[in-house]
Structure formats: structure tokens, C-alpha cells
Amino acid sequence: MIQLSVNSLTKSFDSNRVLSNLSFQVNEGEFVSILGPSGSGKSTIFNLIGGMLLPDEGSITLGNVEISGKRGSISYMPQTPSLMPWRTTLQNVLLGQEIMGKADPETARKMLQKAGLGDYENAYPHELSGGMKQRTAFIRALLSPQPIILLDEPFSALDELTRLDMQKWLLDIWNEHKPTILFVTHNIEEAIYLSDRILILGSKPAKVVQEFKVTFGRPRMEEIFLDENFLECKRSIHYALKTH
């Protein structure tokens, strides 16, 4: 079932056309990545879906409801953790729920336990490591009541080892809850490892130039990074990015 549908979106800033006729769909329970070079208009796409900007043309529907210009329709995890420094981990993960209505500390506590943050429930953000902050930010997004989560290059600021850890952790959590996820990244391996489907974005103006189905089964192990098929997949995506 189609969850999020972006239909022939066009957006310009002054005379600068950023998006042109952009269309894609995300199905319920699907993990879709948008892969594109920096400056290819990825944040503009997120701001449009998040309701921060209005498209010049085209529409965005969630379920069957038009959501362009409606903030709060999607759950969001930004590039930086963006935790409130005066809130403890528990209070921070409840923020998304608080904004939309009612907070449910019990579920949040259980989820923190499972995510390995149980001992840090009452810690303030400055007491957490970079990876722990990102986990907190992701759980906040997961607990928010909206049906789809947008992740905006969430691991790009982390070091390589922490990033691998976080990717594995994200897959574990995703396997358990199966939320619908739209993931933006510029890391090819990350996209293959995590997603069901990868949309390659061409830049200036951005549009989907190619689509890849990732055929690896789930749950996925780290070993697939060394798999022949993985490398083959990486190669074709690389070429697709190069030629557009």
C-alpha cells in the first residue's frame, strides 16, 4: 500500500530551479533511500514534505490526505541530533509525542531500555556520546505518532566505526517495529545496506533519474558488505550517479 506519494513536484527559488517534476512513492513498511550528491536539493525535498515550504507545482499525499504545507504530518530526524539540552533523554524522546498530543513515558522507557539507553534515561544530552545522541533522536522520531519517518543524513557527522554501529542498530530497531522510512544519504554503501529501494537523484534540478531495488533479504548481516552482489550493486549505483 502506498504510504507517501510525491507527485510531479516543482520548486524554484527566484530563478533557480531546484526541483523539476519530482515523483516517487514510499510503500507502507518500506525503507526507501534517496541518494544524491550534496547540494542536489535533498533538504528542499524534506522541507516540502515536512510542510516548511510550499511546492510551486505538484502535490504530496500521505495515506490519501494532501499534506503539502501542513507541518507535523511526518516524523523527522534531522542531521544534527537537535536534542533540547535542558531535557533528559527520556524527556527528549517524548518531545515529538508532546507536540502532537499525549506523551506515553512507559512505552518510551521500554524502548530506551531496548535501545541500550536505559541507564541514561535521566542523563542530559551533554553527558551522551555522539552515537547515543543520534539514537535518542531516532527514538524520538520513532515514538512520534506520525506514520512515516524522514531521516536526513542522520549518520553523516559520526566517525566511521560509530556509523557502522549505528547502521546495525538502526536495522535491528527497524526489523522490530517496521516503520515506514524515507532516508536521505550521500553514502552509497549505507543506502544499499539499509534500504529496500534506492532512488538516485540527479542534481540541478533534482529529479529521480534511476531506481534500484535492493534484493538482499532481511535481517541483513554486516557480512553483505563483502558480498559480490553488494559490490556489483555499488558499482551500478556509482555509474548511475556519475552519468547524471
Binding site: G50, M52, Y76, S82, M84
Partner: peptide, 21 residues
């Protein structure tokens, strides 16, 4: 700006923006 952006994306109204941020 990043905190404000998160709050707005998450659907915070003017009042929530003031009291919670």
C-alpha cells in the same frame, strides 16, 4: 536554528515553540 527547525517540522505551534524551546 536546528532546534527551531526540528520543532517546526514536528508540527509545533507558536505557543509550543515558545514554551518548549
Amino acid at each position: 536554528g536546528e532546534l527551531r527547525h526540528y520543532m517546526l517540522m514536528a508540527g509545533a505551534g507558536r505557543g509550543q515553540l515558545f514554551w518548549k524551546l
